[in-house]
Amino acid sequence: MNNDLLKARLNLHAVLRNLEDLPELDTRAAEMIRAWRLAVCFSVHGGPAATLEFSEGRCRHHAACPPHPDVKLFFVSPAHLNAMFAGNSSPLPLKGFSKLGFLKHEFAELTRRLQHFLRPEPERLAEPAYLRVHTLLTLLTGVFAVPHLAALDPVATEIAAATPRGSLQFVVDSEGPVAHLVYSSNGVESRKGALEQPSACMWFADWPAACRILSGTLDAFTATGKGLLRLDGTIPLIDNTSLIMERAAGYLA
């Protein structure tokens, strides 16, 4: 298995993708990108590509590079991209040399803001607003990691193959449907938002419960017994998805 390729896909499509949601959840991030109008493309030789498109105070993540991005950052290999995400390497800018200052300062600040929420200091989790953003982004990272794990992690591939076809909705009681996964004969797809008739539903009683369950500080057996977690519908869909999702930590730790 090529760990670097899977890790690169997770970095681009599960972690970096969160920049799409961050400005909608965090006023400071929204303020940062308010005037940005550009498309930044990440392109990996022999690997994945992704684009972050900033305009009108919003960020959109695309799983490909457009023909004419404002900035194109090239990586010679998946390992090169992963090294940049670990803070140990720099990309090769192929386009947008005039934006290098922006990338080094403003864009870097935005990614640090994302990291601030994804890698929490324990005391920050006492703040409900922070906990909500952290947990939502963690959940979305997990949900968007599943299709890539199911495609490239050998054990996850085996689990996904044994998973019933259908859809799994993630719901936080106070928030409503957050995201969902669809298992079909074409593979696994992840999306934000609600499904009309999911095959299964993983329901969290509140954000603190979701945070503890997703971080592994509260097990699902205890949580279901205490009414903090409910597994509705096709339970093997939930069981198998949890097993797949847990494998993301081995690549992103």
């Binding site: 699902a220 057996f221 279901t224 017994g225 009414g227 409910r230 597994l231 509705d232 519908g233 339970i235």
Partner: peptide, 10 residues
């Protein structure tokens, strides 16, 4: 015997 797979645990 875990309540987890019962669905409507309550």
């Amino acid at each position: 015997f875990s309540p987890a797979p019962l669905g409507q645990t309550a």
